[in-house]
C-alpha cells in the first residue's frame, strides 16, 4: 500500500512554519539573505519535511485498510535523512508506504516509510514514521 502526493512549498508557509518552531535563521525568513547565500528563495527548516511529507503520509497512516484509530495514535519514533535543501517554489512529491505492523505487549506498532523528490526528480528527503496505537 502506498500513497503519493505533491506539495507546492510556499514562501509564507516556510516563514509561518519557521516561526512556529522558533527557527530564526535569516535563510528561512529573508529572501535577500537566502539569495545572497545562493538559494533561489527562503529555505525550509529541515523539520518542515514533516509538513510536505504529510500530504502523502496522512492518507497512508489513515488508510482504512490499515485501520488505525487516529485518537489512540501516538507518534513512537521518527527518522529523517536530508539530501538536498528545499526552497520556496519547489514542488515536492512524496511517496509514503506502509512497511509493517508488529505487536509490543498491549501496543501495536505500525511503520511507514517515505521518499520525497523535487520537481527535478532529485531525492530531497527520506523518512521513517513509527506509530504506536494505545
Amino acid at each position: 500500500m502506498s500513497h503519493s502526493d505533491t506539495y507546492l512549498v510556499g514562501r509564507e508557509k516556510i516563514r509561518e512554519y519557521a516561526a512556529s518552531i522558533g527557527e530564526q535563521s535569516p535563510l528561512c525568513h529573508d529572501v535577500a539573505a537566502a539569495r545572497e547565500a545562493g538559494y533561489e528563495d527562503v529555505v525550509a527548516p529541515p523539520m518542515f519535511a514533516a509538513v510536505y511529507k504529510w500530504r502523502a503520509m496522512g492518507p497512508a497512516v489513515l488508510d482504512p485498510q490499515i485501520g488505525i484509530d487516529f485518537s489512540r495514535l501516538v507518534h513512537g519514533a521518527q527518522d529523517f535523512t536530508w539530501h538536498l535543501p528545499v526552497v520556496a517554489g519547489d514542488e515536492i512529491t512524496t511517496e509514503a508506504s506502509f512497511v509493517d505492523e508488529a505487536k509490543r505487549g498491549e501496543i501495536k506498532v505500525y511503520t511507514f516509510s517515505s521518499r520525497s523528490t523535487n520537481q527535478r526528480g532529485e531525492l530531497v528527503c527520506e523518512g521513517t514514521w513509527t506509530n504506536f496505537v494505545r
Binding site: V43, P45, M47, D79, F80, T81, W82
Partner: peptide, 8 residues
Amino acid sequence: PLALKSLS
C-alpha cells in the same frame, strides 16, 4: 538549518 544530514 541546512547542516542537518539526519535526525532520528
